[in-house]
Amino acid sequence: MSVTVDHESLAAESLGLTTIGHVLSHLQRDNRLVINLLIDGQKPDLGRLGQIRAAPLDGHTLFIETAEPQEIALEVLGEVDAQLEDGDRLKDEAVDLLQQNNPAAAMERLSGCFTIWNAARESIQKTTQLLRIDVEKIEVGGRSLGDLLVDFTDQLRQIKASLEGRDFVSLADILQYEMTQTTTHWREAVAYVRRAAGGE
């Protein structure tokens, strides 16, 4: 049995750790996230996590790399911030194209916006879960982040309705005013979560 965590040997036997699950729980108690796991040099099938956790350490070589949740959160939030800037640029281009009566080109930009906005929403939700931050306690623009997430879903519905009705004037207005405010709120939420993660 050999257990290596972050390139250092872990005395699993003297700690009373007898299964792979014991080792993973031990690391979790130290507030570490497993970002890489090799068992006998192979990546395990995570679809069988229950079986993997129950497997005895005897006769196996474990190599584990970990990271602190805050470290991962700060990295993700930095990427979200950069993506939101790209999303703003694409949104502004889409509005300009709609005002120039060029909806086909505007839709291309808008497609990129949707991808960015959905990724930002997901990343913020997952990061707050990772850091155990209640989205209802994050206040953005006088409202909770939970409310902002609901607003965002409503705005996407309005955008969809404008697209289906080919109402490009309303679409341009939603993008120019409401989505500009929403991305400002996303940035404030990112800043809040970054502070909570110790990044500012």
Rank of each mutant, 00 (worst) to 15 (best):
T4N: 13
T127E: 10
I133P: 04
S111L: 01
L98P: 02
S144K: 07
A12R: 07
P69V: 10
S144E: 02
V169Y: 14
G146R: 11
T115S: 15
I116P: 12
R187Y: 07
Q125P: 04
Y177R: 07
F63A: 06
Q51G: 03
E164P: 07
T184L: 09
L38E: 00
L90W: 02
R53M: 08
L17M: 03
N31W: 05
E139T: 15
E68M: 12
P44A: 07
N31Q: 07
Q176K: 06
Q100C: 13
V76Y: 02
E71G: 07
L37R: 00
M1C: 00
Q70P: 13
I64A: 13
D96R: 15
V80F: 10
F152K: 09
Q176W: 06
D92K: 15
R194T: 15
T127W: 08
G50E: 15
A196C: 03
G87Q: 01
Q181T: 03
L145G: 14
E164A: 05
K137T: 14
S123H: 01
L10F: 11
L110Y: 12
R29T: 09
I124C: 07
D81M: 14
L110V: 08
L37M: 06
Q176V: 03
A67L: 11
D88Q: 10
E79H: 01
Q42L: 06
A55W: 01
G16C: 12
L49M: 15
Q155S: 01
D154Y: 15
E164Q: 03
C113L: 05
A73R: 06
V169F: 15
A67P: 03
V34Y: 01
L84T: 00
H26K: 08
L15F: 11
A191C: 04
A197Q: 11
H22W: 02
V140W: 04
S111E: 04
G21D: 05
M107A: 09
Q176S: 10
R89P: 02
A189D: 13
Q83I: 13
V3R: 08
V76D: 13
P103F: 03
L17A: 12
H7I: 05
I39C: 05
Q100K: 10
I20N: 07
Y177H: 15
I138H: 11
I72W: 02
E200L: 06
D88F: 00
D30Q: 09
I116W: 04
G198A: 00
A54V: 03
A189C: 11
V76R: 15
S144M: 12
L74I: 08
I174P: 01
D45C: 09
R89T: 11
F168Q: 06
R157A: 12
A197E: 07
T61F: 14
L62R: 01
R109H: 10
A94D: 02
L130S: 09
L145H: 09
K126Q: 10
D134S: 01
E75F: 04
A196Y: 13
R29V: 09
Q129N: 00
P44W: 06
L163W: 10
Q181W: 12
E13F: 06
R194W: 02
L98Y: 00
R194P: 12
P44Q: 05
L33T: 09
D45E: 06
K43L: 14
H185M: 05
V5P: 04
I138G: 06
G141W: 05
G78P: 00
D40S: 07
